[in-house]
Deep mutational scan, measured.
Amino acid sequence: HSHMSHTQVIELERKFSHQKYLSAPERAHLAKNLKLTETQVKIWFQNRRYKTKRKQLSSEL
């Protein structure tokens, strides 16, 4: 499990705020920019979407 830097997370968050789903080319581009693997980016987005979904569910209770 590799640790992401604060800067990388900020960039991922910024991208996520604009779009929740990335196409393969977008993911490849973002990964390259942030010096991450595409898998890391993919998993981060999956986890981030899951967290957002959970938060929405709990706020509706």
Results as ranks from 00 to 15, higher is better:
21 Y>Q: 03
29 H>R: 15
45 F>E: 00
46 Q>L: 06
59 S>H: 07
9 V>A: 07
58 S>N: 14
48 R>E: 07
44 W>N: 00
46 Q>A: 13
26 E>S: 03
18 H>Y: 11
46 Q>V: 06
4 M>R: 02
56 Q>A: 09
46 Q>K: 15
25 P>K: 13
49 R>I: 06
7 T>G: 08
44 W>M: 03
51 K>V: 10
7 T>P: 04
2 S>A: 11
36 L>S: 01
9 V>M: 15
48 R>D: 01
6 H>C: 15
45 F>D: 00
27 R>S: 04
12 L>H: 00
49 R>Y: 06
27 R>H: 03
11 E>T: 05
4 M>K: 02
38 E>Y: 05
11 E>C: 14
31 A>R: 00
32 K>T: 07
32 K>H: 10
29 H>S: 13
38 E>A: 08
36 L>F: 01
33 N>F: 12
14 R>L: 08
5 S>E: 04
47 N>T: 09
34 L>Q: 00
32 K>L: 13
41 V>A: 01
10 I>T: 09
36 L>M: 07
32 K>C: 07
59 S>A: 12
18 H>D: 09
48 R>Q: 14
30 L>V: 05
46 Q>Y: 09
56 Q>S: 15
2 S>P: 11
34 L>K: 01
28 A>T: 06
43 I>M: 11
28 A>V: 06
40 Q>M: 04
22 L>F: 01
24 A>Q: 12
2 S>G: 14
32 K>F: 06
40 Q>K: 02
3 H>G: 10
1 H>A: 08
47 N>V: 08
53 K>D: 14
17 S>G: 06
29 H>Q: 13
47 N>W: 15
52 T>G: 10
48 R>I: 10
45 F>M: 02
51 K>S: 10
11 E>F: 05
33 N>P: 00
27 R>G: 03
54 R>K: 14
48 R>Y: 03
34 L>I: 04
49 R>V: 03
24 A>G: 11
54 R>E: 11
27 R>L: 14
31 A>G: 02
26 E>R: 02
50 Y>K: 15
41 V>W: 02
4 M>E: 01
39 T>C: 15
57 L>V: 14
26 E>Y: 02
53 K>T: 07
48 R>T: 04
8 Q>G: 02
60 E>I: 06
10 I>E: 12
54 R>Q: 13
11 E>R: 05
38 E>H: 04
27 R>F: 08
27 R>M: 14
7 T>C: 13
28 A>G: 05
2 S>H: 12
13 E>G: 02
7 T>L: 13
21 Y>S: 04
19 Q>V: 07
58 S>K: 11
32 K>I: 09
59 S>W: 05
30 L>E: 00
44 W>S: 03
5 S>R: 06
14 R>T: 05
35 K>V: 05
2 S>T: 12
1 H>F: 08
14 R>H: 11
58 S>M: 09
5 S>Y: 07
37 T>E: 04
36 L>E: 00
48 R>C: 08
31 A>N: 00
54 R>W: 06
58 S>Q: 12
56 Q>E: 13
10 I>F: 09
33 N>R: 15
54 R>I: 10
51 K>T: 08
34 L>P: 08
28 A>H: 10
39 T>S: 08
19 Q>T: 11
29 H>V: 14
13 E>N: 05
47 N>Q: 13
52 T>D: 15
8 Q>W: 05
14 R>I: 07
6 H>F: 07
3 H>W: 12
57 L>G: 13
19 Q>M: 07
31 A>P: 00
50 Y>L: 14
30 L>W: 01
40 Q>N: 02
50 Y>M: 15
36 L>G: 00
32 K>E: 09
25 P>C: 15
25 P>V: 12
56 Q>C: 15
17 S>T: 09
20 K>S: 07
47 N>L: 11
23 S>E: 04
9 V>G: 02
53 K>H: 07
9 V>T: 09
42 K>W: 08
35 K>L: 10
18 H>K: 13
2 S>E: 09
53 K>Y: 07
60 E>T: 04
50 Y>D: 11
6 H>S: 09
5 S>C: 08
15 K>S: 08
1 H>W: 08
16 F>Q: 02
4 M>I: 10
47 N>P: 00
52 T>E: 15
12 L>M: 03
1 H>K: 12
57 L>S: 12
40 Q>Y: 04
36 L>V: 03
23 S>Y: 04
43 I>A: 06
37 T>S: 09
21 Y>A: 03
1 H>C: 15
10 I>N: 07
8 Q>C: 11
31 A>S: 04
24 A>C: 07
46 Q>S: 06
10 I>L: 12
29 H>F: 10
26 E>G: 02
51 K>F: 09
12 L>E: 02
33 N>T: 14
11 E>A: 13
59 S>R: 06
35 K>F: 12
55 K>Y: 05
59 S>V: 11
43 I>C: 11
51 K>G: 10
39 T>G: 07
12 L>N: 00
25 P>W: 11
30 L>A: 01
7 T>I: 08
47 N>C: 15
42 K>H: 09
15 K>Y: 14
11 E>S: 06
61 L>F: 06
53 K>C: 15
3 H>I: 08
43 I>P: 00
18 H>L: 09
5 S>N: 07
1 H>S: 08
40 Q>A: 06
54 R>M: 10
32 K>W: 06
